[in-house]
Simulated assay, not measured.
Amino acid sequence: MDVKKRLKNYNLSVLKTVGKGTYGNVYLCENRDNALLTIVKDIELNFKLQDHKQDIANEVKILSSLDHPNVIKFYACYYAENHVMISMEYATSGNLAEYMYQRCPKLLPQQEILFYFCQVLLGVNYIHSQNIIHRDLKAENILLTGKNGVVVKIGDFGISKMLASAKKTSTVIGTPYYLAPELCEGKPYCTKSDVWALGCLLYEMCTHKRAFDAETLVGLVKAITSGSVHPIDLTTYDRSMQDLVDSMLSILPDKRPSIKELMGRTVLLPDIYTVYLDAGNEELLHLRIKELMMFT
C-alpha cells in the first residue's frame, strides 16, 4: 500500500514530499476534518511491528504530552503494515541550518544569535525538566515558524534513532558531527550530551563552520575526543561567547553546565528573560528582533 492510501485511512491528504531521510520519508499533509496542516514522518520498519508496537506507542505518548511554545507538538502515531507514521506540528519557515546558509558568508550579529539560541535553550530546558533527552539536536532540527520565521520550535527528537535501534543494526548511519565524546566511547546519552550538541550549534551559528569536522568517521571521532576547536572571531563577538562555547564543549560531561546554569549566564540572561516573556508570540518576537537589528 502506498503512503497516500495509508494516510487516507486516517483522514490525511498528502500535499507534497518535504524530505527523504535515512529512516523514512517526510510529508506535508492536510487533515481533511479540520484543514490543519501537519508533518507526517513515514518510517518503514524491517521487524515485526507487534513486537515493538508498545515501545513505540509509549515513546510517542511521552512526546505527545509535551506542551511548550518552543517545542514541536506531536499529534498522533499511526500504524499500517510495517510502517509507523508520526504526525506532528508543521513549522512554516524552514530550519536554522537553512537560515544560516542564507546569511553565509556574513557572520550573524551576536544579538541575533542570542535571540534564536535563547529560544532553543528554553525549549531544551523544558524537555529536560520532563526527564527527556532530545538525542538529536542540530541546526536542521531547530525549526522556525510564523509568518516572519522568528519563533523557534525544537523538532525531530531522537525517536527515529530509537526506532532504527529496534532494527538491531550496528551500522553508523550518517556523519555524527554533533556527537559528544562520551557517546563516541559507547556510553549512554545524558542531558549533558544535549548540552554538547548545543555547544556545537552555537559554534556553528558564530562561524558558519562545524565545530568538529573530518573526512572520515575515525578522523571525526578523533577530533571530537580531542575537544579542541578554533576560536570564534573575537572582533565580532564578546569573549563571553567564546567562554560559553568552551564550557559547553568540555570533554567531561560533569564539567559542562546544565541548561539551567547556562540560562543564568550574564551574556544570556537578558535575552532569556525577553524571549521567555514573549515565548511563542510571533508579533512580540518580531518586534524584538527588529529592535535588535537596529542596533547591530
Rank of each mutant, 00 (worst) to 15 (best):
L7D: 08
S13M: 14
L15K: 14
K20W: 01
T22P: 01
L28H: 10
L28I: 07
T38E: 15
I39E: 11
V40P: 10
I43R: 02
F47A: 07
L49P: 06
L49S: 07
L49D: 09
V60N: 11
V60I: 15
I62T: 15
S64D: 05
L66M: 15
D67H: 12
Y75F: 15
H83W: 08
Y90M: 06
L96Y: 08
C104P: 00
L108P: 07
F117Y: 03
C118I: 04
L121C: 13
L122I: 00
I132V: 09
R135C: 14
K138G: 04
A139C: 10
N141H: 08
N141D: 12
N141M: 02
I142Y: 06
L143P: 02
V150W: 01
V151R: 12
I154E: 10
G155N: 11
D156A: 01
F157D: 05
G158K: 01
S160D: 01
L163H: 03
S165P: 00
K168D: 12
T169C: 02
T169W: 00
V172M: 13
A180R: 01
P181E: 14
Y189G: 07
T191K: 14
S193Q: 02
V195H: 06
L202D: 05
Y203W: 02
A211Q: 04
A211Y: 03
D213G: 01
V218E: 12
G219H: 04
K222N: 09
G227K: 11
S228G: 00
P231G: 03
L234Y: 00
T235N: 13
D238L: 13
R239H: 09
S240Q: 15
D243N: 08
I251C: 05
K255L: 04
I259A: 04
K260I: 11
L262K: 00
R265V: 06
R265P: 00
L269R: 15
D271C: 06
D278W: 09
L285K: 09
L285S: 08
R288L: 15
E291L: 14
F295W: 08
